[in-house]
Write a protein that binds this DNA or RNA. Structure first.
Lengths: 339, 339
DNA sequence: GTGAAAGCGCTAACAT
DNA sequence: ATGTTAGCGCTTTCAC
């Protein structure tokens, strides 16, 4: 049997399409009797409105696009989950795409989303995105956009971030508080804003505690992989025996560092304390468990959607609110790798 | 400025909508001149067809739904990625939802997908799903469905799975091949099909190698958590010093086992070899790195989408193909924990 | 309280 | 080779 349409219902009942539509959409000017009649038949025939027609009429898809740099990634998985849960409560579906942390691909995927007529976009920039014409064209086309996590200050829109400076400062302060004096930082190149900010936070904490920044304890890596962490740790182990703590800007780097120290019989945390960043599941499985900074992905996802949603609603009502940047709180998770 | 429509283009050019449409859609019966004219103007005005209208016309959304039990999960993240990449190549977008491994929620999310008029659904059942009327109603409504990973033999549709029996057998055989004689299995209760099959595979390998199955070396755990692995290892350590290898049915269990042996100064792999199952990222971070069975999520996702896609195409052309169950190959990843 | 009619933007069957 | 027309299913304005 074919799908029930409004037309069919109205024909069976001998009333007009418009009346049937009004009955189903709770319009006031429909007699209770008619309304009941329509509602009953609709239930009986298992009527669901054809969303294609609704979409065409309203020019809304009730779908939003979510761009993440990497899907197979603990933090971004949590983002996805937070967004999806929040969206589903408001009747929105989420189309997820991945940018592969690559600008070109990001542009392509954004285009694909727009072709599907998504009602809004959530975006975390690829590492090498520093041309913003794609998002600017979004904005000039009046498509609501919320940037999260990896954002740019050059774009005027709603944003949700963590305060990386503060978080890194807290991480470093934690190391200082437990008595560490020679604190190395392991970080990738200063390209993304997050890395830059974490670097700043590290330095800020040193400064506030009258510890001199030592260029030699500032270890730059190729990327944020496990291998890079291992290499960095080797550098420290071989050249800087005086180091008593390491702040790594990602958990994976931190774990690489930890592994290498262990392999070289450096006791963690007795000889060296280590703290990472993000609170990946992994950190609870290493021996010793890794101290880290909690970066609440689900909450960020939820907030990002909520911002997007209110912008969509505002657009519909022709109200214009000033853009906000929501800063999500982070906290130090102190585990066995720091003492 | 408002969006360019076909109508606008045809008006400017003084031709009919249909001719313009044909020009854009590569119909043969359009003069090269007209075609060029239309294409140029379209490019100039940055014309993109309104997908709402296209969808209404074709009754297709070019969107598919993907239901996963858990989003924040290494294996399922890989599934998502595999599906999205394959889909994007065919011009399909993917709406991702999570069932929370709960039947009720699975039904709800499936409904939500249908209301968005997805062109097809990819589904891995929640642990407690044993009522299948929701998917049966899908099928009777002619919505293409592909089951992956956690499937049911009771549903007649395309499927993609791994051969758990064979994979577990290979894992056990690997232990035998490297000279192990007393091989324990650590497994959760025999409820899910996957666990049952991995158990069967273990026994099959023993049988084929004339090793007697020993009930005492068959350790049943509450669940597949790290903690359960630790408990199991303790049992082995305290009561069965003769054990020289452990096959754990999940990586997390295996890691728990590994950790506990290490804590008790049992050398891995010198004294005991350990192999897990799934090849989570985690396994590359333990010391020693964990041998395991590769369960290729991305590939499964790709195959699942491809099956769905060909069913969608077949439906359009009114051809009916018999359903297939694709079994994805797994392989032993031999790392440092087995020797 | 109800219904007729228009229209969202596109495509395709059918003229011409 | 081009245009006319109808229609996908819905919502909403306006007349009655």
């Amino acid at each position: 049997m074919s799908k029930t349409t409004l037309n069919k219902i109205s024909e069976i009942l001998g009333i007009s399409k418009s009346t049937a539509s009004k009955a189903l959409n709770n319009y006031a000017d429909v007699s209770p009797k008619t309304k009941a009649m329509v509602l009953n038949l609709a239930k009986e025939l298992d009527y669901t409105p054809n969303s294609f027609a609704q979409n065409l009429r309203s020019q809304e898809s009730k779908i939003i696009g979510l761009i993440v740099p990497e899907i197979v990634h603990y933090f971004f998985s949590n983002i996805i989950l937070g967004v999806i849960n929040a969206a589903s409560k408001c009747g929105y579906a989420v189309v997820v795409v991945q940018s592969n942390d690559d600008y070109e691909y990001e542009v392509k995927q954004l285009d694909a989303l727009l072709q599907k007529n998504v009602d809004g976009v959530l975006l975390s920039f690829a590492d090498n995105t520093n041309n913003f014409k794609h998002v600017k064209s979004l904005l000039s086309n009046n498509v609501p956009l919320v940037l999260y996590d990896k954002i740019s200050k050059l774009i005027d829109c709603n944003k949700v971030v963590i305060d990386d400076i503060k978080a890194a400062q807290m991480a470093t302060q934690h190391l200082i508080d437990i008595g560490c004096k020679k604190i190395a930082i392991v970080r990738n190149k200063l390209k993304s804003q997050t890395t830059i900010d974490r670097y700043k936070g590290y330095k800020k904490a040193l400064l506030l505690n009258d510890i001199e920044y030592d260029k030699l304890l500032d270890i730059e890596t190729e990327d944020v992989s496990l291998e890079s962490g291992k290499k960095a740790a080797l550098t420290i182990f071989e050249n800087h025996k005086e180091v008593d703590a390491v702040f790594a800007v990602t958990d994976l780097l931190a774990i690489g560092v930890l592994e290498t120290f262990k392999e070289n019989n450096v006791q963690v945390p007795e000889q060296i304390s280590i703290i990472g960043f993000s609170n990946w599941l992994l950190t609870q499985i290493t021996t010793p468990h890794l101290s880290t900074i909690d970066q609440p992905g689900q909450q960020m996802g939820k907030v990002a959607f909520d911002l997007l949603y209110s912008e969509i609603i505002n657009n519909k009502n022709n109200v214009k609110e000033p853009y906000k940047t929501v800063v999500i709180d982070t906290k130090v998770i102190s585990r066995e790798s720091t003492k």
